[in-house]
Amino acid sequence: MGPSDEELYRRIRKGDREALAALYERREPALYRYALQLTGNRATAEESTHEAFLQLIQPGARFDALRGSLEAYLYGAVRNLARAAYRVQGVGIVGERAAEGDIVATLIEEETTRALNVAVRNLPLGYREAVVLCDLEERSYEDAARLVGCPVGTIRSRLFRARRLLAMKLRPYGMSPERIARRER
């Protein structure tokens, strides 16, 4: 058990490079995957994650430990940056076009999984966040609620509705109960 994120942050503010390296190593991979799953775009994910850390080390960094954890602050920063990239670059175009240039899609071999990736990408942001954090990053409801900054019940209901939508969208791709039953036979 190493020092907490907040302790590392205090050391970073005093100019400790090792503390920054440790925090980056601890949080960057999950933040990057979060951004990647939200946007589907590698460049945007890299940029958002990098920018979130850059904001953290700036002299006027706005992180306040009294208002929440550093992890939640970083997730919030990545989310806002990814959302801004959506608006500027038009990432997250609805429909099938969302899969164009989608780096996650290139990593997926199976058609159904690729269809699920597209469907996740086309969910409303709140639903998408719930799916990414709870189902793809396997966070608890409590964790996800803390990172998103909303009540646990909200995350729970968003995920429930999101999964319902996803199941419906995947029917044409072979996730109808009949095909599932056939596949299992």
Binding site: E28, L36, E46, L107, E110, T113, L136, E137
Partner: peptide
């Protein structure tokens, strides 16, 4: 399918 999607990006991180 979520499990497969999760595995697809499991090792991904910034360069």
């Amino acid at each position: 399918e979520m499990g497969k999607l999760r595995l697809a990006v499991a090792g991904e991180r910034s360069p």
